[in-house]
Amino acid sequence: MDISPTTAPPPPQDTRPAPLPTKAAARGATRPGDRIFLGLSRGSGILLLLIMAAIAAFLTYRASIVLSENEGNFLTTFEWNANAVPPVFGIAVLAFGTVVSSIIAMIIAVPIAVGIALFITHYAPRKLSGPIAYVIDLLAAVPSIVYGLWGALFLVPHLTGVYSWLNDYFGWTGILEWQGGAPRSLLTVGILLAIMILPIITNVSREVFKQAPQMHQEAALALGATRWEVIRMSVLPFGRSGIISASMLGLGRALGETMAVATVLSPSFLINASVLDPGGGTFAQNIASKFAEASEQGRDALIASGLVLFVITLLVNGAARAIIARRKEYSGANA
């Protein structure tokens, strides 16, 4: 290399693209606006995590105290005497009622919601699809206590006929047997929950179906598919993971719904094979109805049950993610 005395030898870095002046510039954070925004977003992210950790730690701590004093088995006891000394309580009946009523709600709501969403996006004339979508949105805005009041004052009295019909034709299954009590059982709760989660499932599915690629629908049409076959071949497969996500959103709401269930259900601390007869409560309903009269120890027991609901919700979401991920290579995403 020629080193002349008048010009400084070029440093080796000069062969690379011009280096950025400072380290901070390399991270793109020199402008004050960027720095403030970075600080704010990072700070609120950390704060959020801290708050959540604090809540979790607090709830777990409170729950662990009362759990260590529990005379019954927390998972299998059919009893809730958490104010007693020593306390005796278990979540078996609550878990049963929560899961069963939510399953009933899903069985009713998902097909109807998917049907409505398909009707809005693929069948209804444009003049009709707008108003229908609007009404569904309105349903989503009704407060849950209103659903509860409607359920107690209208739905319950009107379900007697349905209950006796079910008993007549399907009573032999055991699941739909009815002894004739007031229809304030898990089935009624399931029906009410179905109505409540219908809007969210419908709206999310509708958005997904609207995105179904035109080119694949035309491919099906050009093969001689009828409208329903187009939906089956291209719209539903495309919307599959969306339907699952939508259902999970609905399920999340059904699992945690409190006021409407507490208003309609007559809870009982036994488990019944029939969803028409009294049997079971739900986590949220149990907390709502027991909280006011609970001692400090009783409240801790309710907190423990709330943590179980939290775990169930997490498991459900995890399962949904697994289902969505399983057939990812076939999803519309890599078309």
Partner: peptide, 11 residues
């Protein structure tokens, strides 16, 4: 069609 459009969810 102009753009190849095999059904992405099918083998």
């Amino acid at each position: 069609f102009q753009r190849p459009n095999p059904f992405p969810t099918m083998s």
